[in-house]
Amino acid sequence: MSVSYRMNAVKVTAKRELKSTLYGIGLYVVLTIIFLITSYASIRVSIMNVVNNGIEAIQNPISWPFLVTVFLASTYLGLCSAISISREREQGTMEVLFYGPVDSFSYVIGKYLQQILTFGVVLGFSIIYFFLISQITNFGFTAQFLGLLFLSVFLASSMVAFGIFLSTLAKKTIVGVVSFLALVLFFLIFWAAHSVIMGISGTNMSTALIYTRLVLDNINLVIQWISPIAYFVRGMVAVSVGSLGQYLLSIISSAIYSAILIALAIITFERRGAKR
């Protein structure tokens, strides 16, 4: 009985938030910006290569633009997640919800589910957009794209779970926003720095660079498991090398990462309580 009550609480809280998102203009503005960025930064490059060289040798030309779209949309949803719980605590509406049949589990899962469903809407628009792009440019809209769609849900889930976890830690909305953006930026910079340094040939390296490389590599041992960016990178690598094993591993690791963060969010929330 309590399971059905709990599921109802998850469903109703997620539905309210989803309706509010879908009836608002924010999501559509952000999606438009994301598609413009994707068109300009990724698809335009491929088209220009074809125009300039007469040929573009790339296996799945819409995979990368799609992953860029997923990354940007997930970061936006992660940011919304980072805001959602702390804002409701700040406004006091969370307290009113907890007067009724809502507990920490159903509340956090409801928030998570709403963001995942919103991502489903993003995917719907993305499918239409990339299908149109493939029709216009004649870039292949292959079966592998379906695999990417499936993977993208788990990648988005990692980012959303990360945002929700931060939101349960933050007392104020501004703290949730700043900490999310700061950490995502840090992880991105770290990933870029690590990639660049690891890409430098081992011969003729200065001692300082060797030590820097060693330090970054050791830090990466931890960051590769706590950063949501790292899960994106794993997914991107899996897609670029076309490895089914890596693809599955990416899905499983993202799912575990999300589950751990959501569990931590529930525990943190339970300890802090819903009181304003």
Partner: peptide, 22 residues
């Protein structure tokens, strides 16, 4: 012991009205 059933049988009016103003 019976969180959801008990909560469903209680109505609460708080001093400050925190509402979804949208």
């Amino acid at each position: 012991e019976d969180y959801f059933n008990i909560k469903r049988r209680i109505g609460v009016l708080s001093e400050f009205q925190y509402l979804y103003e949208d």
